[in-house]
Simulated assay, not measured.
Amino acid sequence: MDTRFPATRSLFGLAVGDAFGAQILLPGDHPTVLERRLPAAPWEWTDDTEMACCIYQTLTRYGQIDQDALAMSFATHFTAERGYGSAAERMLLRYRKGDSWREVAPSMFGGKGSWGNGAAMRVAPLGAWYGPNLDAVVTEAAKSALVTHNHPEGVAGAIAVAVAAAIASTAPNISSGEFLQAVVTRVPDSQVRSGIHTAYELLSTDDPRIAGERLGIGHGVSAQDTVPLALWLAARNLNSFEDAMWTAARVAADLDTVCAITGGIIAAGPGSVTVQPAWLRACEPLPEWVG
């Protein structure tokens, strides 16, 4: 895959962030984190990366999100050992049997649909794919979310992350404040959007624990308690992938997903915003089927 392209860079950054976060067993102010000692390689990625690869594959094949094809890709490549949640596992097994996502996804959680962070964790490469065409970013991100996450918060989380990656890929010199302001204008009214407003207010806060207390740390595995923190981390570290990852390790609960989202956004940026070779070498290779 050609890493000159923002979507490919984003996918690699997402995978490395995901795999790194999955290895950190002692988050917070443990010496391993404070001294920035990298975990032993290899780092295996999780369902975050597997589903992001499905989005990337769908975009390369169809040039847009074909929802039926995406649902089939999720079902075909589903690997239970990657750490899927129980609800996601049941859903994807139903898709594999031939049930339609149009019926299954809206029926989840008593007919409310899922507001989990799964649609957000996988979508950064899509934002980088469409880049400056933010109307397409919003439309296609929503389409990608609805295949599994039918709740408005789940959709809003996906839109927020995709827009953030798109802006990172096209505005290399943007300030942290301008970055979050540009993102929030495209996110529908939701708790996710309110959280991004709070993230903007917290940009001057150096202690990630304070940000986590206000924004959520992913403990509930919901879009609204995961995406705002990931965007705060990305906004404060647009030029440093490593700083973002280690800062996340001090505060996040759902660490692989927070790092996947944050890494996918930051790595979409051009120039010096790259993942260090040592981190890339430590990460498990992406699957051959992604193309």
Rank of each mutant, 00 (worst) to 15 (best):
E213W: 10
E213Q: 13
E213S: 13
E213Y: 11
E213N: 12
R214C: 10
R214E: 11
R214W: 07
L215P: 04
L215M: 04
G216N: 07
G216W: 03
G218W: 04
G218L: 06
G218N: 06
H219E: 13
H219K: 14
G220V: 00
V221E: 08
S222R: 14
A223G: 11
Q224E: 08
Q224G: 00
Q224K: 08
D225K: 15
T226I: 01
T226R: 05
V227T: 01
V227R: 02
P228L: 05
P228T: 00
L229W: 05
L229C: 06
L229E: 03
A230D: 01
A230N: 03
L231M: 12
L231P: 13
W232Y: 08
L233N: 12
L233H: 09
L233S: 13
A234M: 08
A234K: 10
A234P: 07
A235N: 08
A235E: 01
A235D: 01
A235H: 07
A235R: 10
R236D: 00
R236Y: 01
N237E: 08
N237T: 04
L238H: 10
N239T: 08
N239R: 10
S240F: 02
S240C: 15
F241R: 10
F241Y: 15
E242C: 11
E242I: 06
A244M: 09
A244Y: 10
T247R: 14
T247C: 11
A248S: 15
A248F: 06
A249S: 15
A249N: 14
A249E: 12
R250T: 11
R250G: 10
A252D: 09
A252K: 14
A252C: 14
A252H: 14
D256A: 10
D256H: 05
T257L: 05
V258G: 12
V258A: 11
C259T: 15
C259E: 08
C259H: 12
C259K: 11
A260V: 00
I261Q: 07
T262G: 11
T262F: 04
G263K: 05
G263Y: 06
G263A: 07
G264E: 01
G264K: 08
G264H: 03
G264F: 06
I265N: 08
I265F: 05
I265D: 06
I265M: 09
I266G: 13
A267M: 00
A267C: 03
A268C: 03
A268L: 02
G271I: 00
G271T: 00
S272Y: 04
S272D: 12
S272E: 11
S272T: 07
V273H: 15
V273W: 12
V273A: 15
V273T: 15
T274P: 09
T274K: 12
T274Y: 09
Q276R: 15
Q276H: 15
P277F: 02
A278Y: 13
A278R: 15
A278I: 10
A278W: 15
W279L: 13
W279P: 03
L280P: 03
R281V: 10
